[in-house]
Write a protein that binds this DNA or RNA. Structure first.
Ligand SMILES: Nc1ccn([C@H]2C[C@H](O)[C@@H](COP(=O)(O)OP(=O)(O)OP(=O)(O)O)O2)c(=O)n1
Ligand SMILES: [Mg+2]
Length: 914
DNA sequence: TGGGGTGTT
DNA sequence: AACACCC
């Protein structure tokens, strides 16, 4: 009944697993805890692989009919995930048996503990009995696991745009493209890395290839095993994470085969062994997709094993399971799984829950809800999006044989105004509002006049959407279609339910008209205020009073050591956070003619109550109305005013007209990077980056819209004219009063490049490099900052020039990995008007040709490990994307807009959503 | 007294 | 809103 459904590995496998646990580099002897580890990876001669002919055939025919197993799918499953994260966080735990505890449950444990008989999902009591020395760490807060999880997934997107997450610790990667690329370039060896299922080390028939499939999949899977090996190796090098890999021709089989050798090993499954693998499963339940319910139904039919399903008649299955499920189950049990790897996007829901023995009073409930909401709102703030739906779930205590279906929930739309101006400053205000909304739902779930007994509360945000660029400044405009559509939508079939909950002060009422289609599209063309920022940069949370800025100057100097940390973070350009400039003017002035008291009542931060604050409101604003608005809304309005300032419409008084960077917006909040770096906020960096990031956003918006074909006039590039951005930049520079001229030049130069890049559209790598630059900037690393920018001015002129050649020290270039010593990254001479893109070339020398944008002096001045990582990144990206870039350049199709899950960044469009 | 997620009905 | 599935 429990889900610890590891099926048994073969006996010999178990022995090896225990003793041969290799926590180091998979492909070579490595050392761990002072012990010499035996490499787990054995290589096998590739029997039927002498066919450059069949390779080419496969490569050109693939996709058209006739190829039985065209795909190569890799499944990655992290070893004892939570436990591994905790061992990274506290290395002292590494050599001890460790269990991760959630309440009374030990949800997972490390392999040391498993050797002693402890299993996943065991009660703490049983685990302690089995192993009195067991060290327990609480795993109720998933924050660190979530962060590491996204960092892993992001890492994997370097190898393929098609990465699908399953839970926190599993990923499917469709590596078909990279396999084809390596085959095409001859960039592979005649070996299979790791285990071969059913024909393994001890298998007698190792050199035999019984009725080999002729579709070419043997070569592809062999190359796939090499890629998997590279991936797992890099994953360990870069994140210190060990995992299992399964390589096969569909998701089902790659997942199943991945679990056959644990931990830290990989297994390849060829079609000839598929039936053997399936029949080794003891129970249908072990087929992912066959859950508890389906299993019970099948059981009632006398069906328990995979073989039973295989021999059952589809008609009979359909009677009990319904047609769709029956077909699915039958195919799965035959090893057939046509489902594609679905590229992941931003999460669609965000929830926080807690369980307990007993909660029976409203005040307790309110307290618990508040607690949950607060932490959830912090996550939401980092995400940068805003929820349109809120849901409250409770579990009521039920005696005896209650099942699992004892949760009840209520949900409601959230008025957008609740999240206007949402920032760390206003988090508590928003929390208060949400709490009222939540308690409103609570009374719908629980009869508070009667005694009650809850054992769980869950709060969740859903329908997460990018913050609207449309501010409340014109929200109430009669022509605001967004508001209208909001008012029209969301009133579900149960028209009386799901009503808009407010804190009682809100006059908005949801009308009950029909819901129009196409709202999402509308949002996508209007939600343009998503910015790209940097993971590392912390948010300013207070209104600038000069003090912060002063500290920031020191911070710039202090931050040099961060250079060292740079290599811990990835150079992956897709790993960047967004920032939003929901700036607030420093309120050194009063709202003239308005009641200061009302501002205070509304919680508007004025820095000091004793001072007088003034701000000139635009003429068309009714000041008395303005003063009555909640602080968050006032803040947003001020922001909109101050933006207009740049266009000369209004002028705010006072020296500080700084736009304040408040909320990092989504994209990849989920990366781990931020945490590994200095947690110190760096306002100066923020201010500067804000300008850049805004530029990036604008560029991205442009590209997104281009790609989406949802292009509307308001989002054309010229409306984000470079000059206005530079204006903004100058303002920020001045206000921060700390930036050197060099930096300013660097920044403005980037903008030029960005515009160029955006106009060109098809230079994936170059776009990424621009973003890398942003990374470098916010790391306050001058060297890295300049790395890409020194070719700046000449960039527009030197299109035809030769690539920079740099002699790298051997160990730096490719870490002594002789597989790649012959690979060179170089710039292809482009036809006039085209941008350069690095491509792989074969070179006999240990020279490294680097992209034109890179200043070789600076590159060489970087620490070796950083050099190495940068090179790795170039290499991997150019390999994994080369084909796609070409396809793009031909502008053959518009597959770009495939992912509708969330609006994505430039990079995601190039690397994530195809 | 587990703490998350996804998609479908 | 519940239920199915996944980790
Ligand atoms: N019902 C479950 C299943 C899993 N997890 C969490 C704990 C695990 O650490 C993580 C990954 O699940 P796995 O089934 O992959 O288990 P592990 O990664 O811990 O161990 P293994 O090495 O067997 O993969 O998800 C959970 O909280 N609840
Ligand atoms: Mg795992």
């Amino acid at each position: 009944m429990d889900s610890s459904d590891e099926f048994n590995s073969p006996e010999y496998g178990s022995d090896i697993d225990v003793e041969d646990e290799d926590w180091g580099k998979p492909t070579s002897c490595s050392y761990s805890d002072g012990q010499i580890q035996i490499p787990v990876t054995s290589t096998h001669a590739l029997q039927q692989c002498n066919e450059s002919r069949s390779i080419k055939t496969a490569s050109s025919d693939r996709g058209s009919a006739g190829i039985e197993h065209p795909r190569t799918i890799l499944h990655i499953d992290i070893d004892c995930f939570y436990a591994q994260v905790e061992m990274i966080r506290n290395p002292e735990l590494k050599d001890k048996p460790l269990g991760i505890q959630q309440k009374y449950l030990m949800v997972t444990c490390n392999y040391k503990a498993r050797e002693l008989g402890v299993t996943k999902m065991m009660s703490v009591k049983d685990a302690k009995e089995k192993c009195p020395n067991l060290v327990l760490v609480s795993g109720e807060d998933l924050t660190h696991y979530r962060q590491m999880s996204y960092q892993i997934s992001e890492f994997l997107t370097r190898y393929s745009s098609e990465v699908e997450r399953l839970g926190f610790d599993e990923n499917f990667i469709d590596i078909t493209d990279m396999v084809q690329q390596r085959i095409h370039l001859g960039n592979y060896i005649p070996e299979i890395k790791g285990h071969i299922y059913g024909r393994d080390d001890f298998s007698v028939s190792k050199d035999l290839s019984p009725e080999s499939c002729i579709c070419g999949c043997h070569t592809r899977l062999a190359v796939g095993s090499q890629i998997a090996d590279d991936i797992r190796d890099s994953l360990f090098q870069e994140l210190g994470i060990t995992c299992c890999g399964g390589i096969s021709y569909n998701k089902l089989l790659s997942k199943l085969v991945a679990g056959t050798h644990k931990p830290n090993q990989q297994t390849t499954l060829f079609p000839e062994q598929t039936q053997e693998l399936l029949k080794s499963l003891k129970h249908v339940r072990q087929i992912p997709g066959v859950g508890w319910n389906t299993c019970k139904i099948l059981e009632a039919m006398g069906i328990t094993t995979v073989r039973d399903v295989q021999s059952a008649l589809l008609e009979n299955l359909e009677k009990e399971l319904g047609k769709p499920l029956a077909v699915t189950v039958k195919k799965l049990c035959d090893g057939i799984d046509d489902t594609p790897v679905h590229p992941y996007g931003l999460p669609q829901t965000m929830s926080d829950e807690d369980s307990f023995r007993k909660l029976s009073s409203v005040s307790e409930a309110k307290e618990k809800i508040r607690e949950l909401l607060h932490s959830l709102l912090k996550r939401l703030l980092e995400d940068g999006r805003v929820p349109r739906t809120f849901r409250l779930t409770v579990r009521k205590f039920q005696t005896g044989m209650n099942k699992y279906t004892c949760r009840e929930s209520r949900q409601c739309p959230v008025v957008p105004s609740v999240f206007f101006g949402f920032s760390s400053d206003t988090l508590n205000q928003v929390c208060n509002q949400m709490e009222k909304i939540a308690m409103n739902l609570f009374t719908k779930l629980v009869d508070t006049n009667q005694p009650f007994h809850l054992t769980l509360i869950n709060v969740a945000f859903a329908k997460l959407e990018q913050k609207s660029k449309i501010s409340i400044a014109n929200y109430f405009s009669p022509t605001n279609q967004k508001r209208k559509e909001f008012e029209e939508k969301d009133e579900e079939p149960n028209a009386k339910r799901d009503r808009l909950d407010t804190d009682g002060d809100d006059h908005i009422r949801i009308s009950q008209e029909k819901k129009p289609a196409g709202l999402l599209k509308w949002f996508r063309t209007n939600f343009t205020s998503k910015d790209i920022g940097n993971n590392n940069t912390k948010v300013l949370d207070t209104v600038g009073d000069g003090g912060d800025i002063h500290r920031s100057q020191k911070s710039v100097v202090d931050n040099k050591p961060q250079l060292h940390q740079f290599n811990k973070t990835r150079l992956s350009a897709s790993c960047f956070k967004n920032y939003q400039t929901t700036g607030v003017a420093s309120l050194e002035k009063v709202f003239e003619g308005t009641s200061v008291q009302s501002m205070k009542n509304n919680g508007l931060q004025t820095g000091s109550d004793k001072h007088s604050y003034t701000i000139n409101l635009p003429r068309e604003v009714d000041q008395s109305v303005f003063s009555e608005l909640p602080a968050s809304i006032q803040q947003e309005l001020i922001q909109s005013f101050s933006k207009e300032t740049q266009t000369g419409q209004i002028k705010c008084n006072g020296k500080n007209g700084i736009l304040q960077q408040t909320s990092p917006a989504s994209e990849i909040t989920y990366a781990y990077k931020r945490q590994t770096l200095s947690g110190k906020s760096n306002p100066s960096s923020n201010c500067r980056v804000t300008g850049i990031s805004r530029k990036i956003i604008d560029s991205r918006t442009f590209i997104n819209n281009k790609l989406d074909q949802g292009f509307t006039e308001q989002n054309t590039l010229h409306s984000y004219s470079s000059s206005s951005v530079q204006e903004t930049l100058k303002n920020e520079q001045t206000d921060c009063t700390i930036q050197s001229c060099n930096e300013i030049e660097g920044v403005t130069h980037i903008e030029k490049q960005l515009v160029t890049v955006c106009n060109c559209l098809h230079s994936c790598v170059q776009v990424e490099q621009q973003i890398s630059l942003i990374d470098a900037c916010t790391h306050n690393n001058q060297s890295l900052h300049n790395l890409y920018s020194s070719t700046g001015e000449s960039d527009q002129n030197n299109c035809g020039k030769q690539s920079g050649m740099v002699k790298c020290s051997e160990e730096n270039a490719f870490g002594g990995d002789n597989k790649y010593l012959k690979q060179t990254i170089c710039i292809e001479d482009d036809p006039p008007g085209e941008t350069q893109k690095p491509q792989l070339r074969i070179s006999p020398e240990k020279h490294l040709e680097i992209p034109l944008d890179v200043d070789k002096e600076i590159f060489l001045s970087l620490p070796p490990d950083i050099q190495k990582e940068i090179i790795q990144d170039w290499k991997i990206r150019s390999e994994s994307h080369a084909i796609k870039i070409d396809v793009n350049a031909n502008s053959t199709n518009g597959k770009m807009s495939k992912s509708t899950k969330a609006s994505k960044g430039i990079l995601s469009y190039f690397s994530n959503a195809e």
